[in-house]
Nucleic acid binder design. Sequence first.
DNA 1: TTTTGTAATTAAACACTGTTCATTTATATT
DNA 2: AATATAAATGAACAGTGTTTAATTACAAAA
Lengths: 205, 205
Amino acid sequence: MGVAERKEREKEELREQILTAAKSLFLKKGVEKTSIRNIADLIEYSPGSIYHYFKDKDEIFYALHQGGFQQLMAKMVVINDLPHPLERLKAMGRIYVHFALENPDMYDLMFIKEAPLDHVARTKALEWNEGEATFKFLRSTLRECMEQGYFQGQEEEALSFLIWSTVHGMVSLSIRRRCEVVLADRQDTIVKDGLNAFFNILDRL
Amino acid sequence: MGVAERKEREKEELREQILTAAKSLFLKKGVEKTSIRNIADLIEYSPGSIYHYFKDKDEIFYALHQGGFQQLMAKMVVINDLPHPLERLKAMGRIYVHFALENPDMYDLMFIKEAPLDHVARTKALEWNEGEATFKFLRSTLRECMEQGYFQGQEEEALSFLIWSTVHGMVSLSIRRRCEVVLADRQDTIVKDGLNAFFNILDRL
DNA sequence: TTTTGTAATTAAACACTGTTCATTTATATT
DNA sequence: AATATAAATGAACAGTGTTTAATTACAAAA
């Protein structure tokens, strides 16, 4: 009959429209300051319509959050052809930091805001799958490094967490504008400098 | 005459009452979900009254934020009697992490939330004095370490930032509940383990 | 072509929010 | 007791997320 298919397609299109509008508003004004009515205005539908496509505001937020991980992961996979695991680890760090600074609001959404995990808690999933995949990627790269003799005397899980924390710490301080405490002439480059200092340490380990 | 003084005192008392009520609600329900009316209800005053004591909700938030730094700094100064600078540095790290995990909502307020800096931006101060004092403390401790020969080949500002980022990264991932990606049996201890792994690295540097 | 059934959309309503402000209340001084 | 002043109030404004009864659009059946 084909009609059902077209309807399905149209429904999917509107869902996508909502997501696109929400994303542009979230990234422009912030999640908190974007109202359902703002989104509705932008797509020229009534506020109520949005609730036929998403349970609540958090569900919109969470859908975008998932998209962010796909983006990040897509950028990560290109390092697979680097043969040296330590080089791969450092490349991961650079990609992570670069992604965070290029897409601060999306990063915020993914790793800083509390909403997505509230959503995870309120639905049924006890797991944060998107984040887990990213962490697994780090852990396996680190394991390869250790198999080749790097980081002796260290333990895989703790070191994985430590490395993640370090890059997350730098970018999240930057994104949430706590870097104003470093010397004025260093503020623009402090994340880059910090990352290089970190790599320097990793090399000597 | 004494009357003005008593009035002044009473005014100060109510201000303090507002702050106490706001703090307990902020820490219990979160800043976003605490309304001025909630605070007013708790102290049994009308919502309008609060605006005689604070310009807006952010000003209440900012006042508490300052209190948090005083708390943290008070805990920090006790390390001054440790003669060895590297021991002092590590003690700072432990105190910082301990404070963050003991007072997650206050830490959130101080280092994660964006509001206080919005406040700083909107008033006149271009500086985040509370944070700056804490960072200076770290930097001077680190300098002493370097003067005694530690961390050779590293640069003071970048390394200060890196160290701060590392501890901030660990606690903020923990507070914002991103630690669920680490192995299930390690989740309870991962921040402690990560910190020890970090100290281990610092020792070898 | 008209009727029917269903899915999509809407406007209105509810209970909130931060904030402002004219009015009322309380109280110290004259 | 009257006055001046500072403090507290409650109503109002314009917004919020969300729910729901009513309406509209439209493909399928008669």
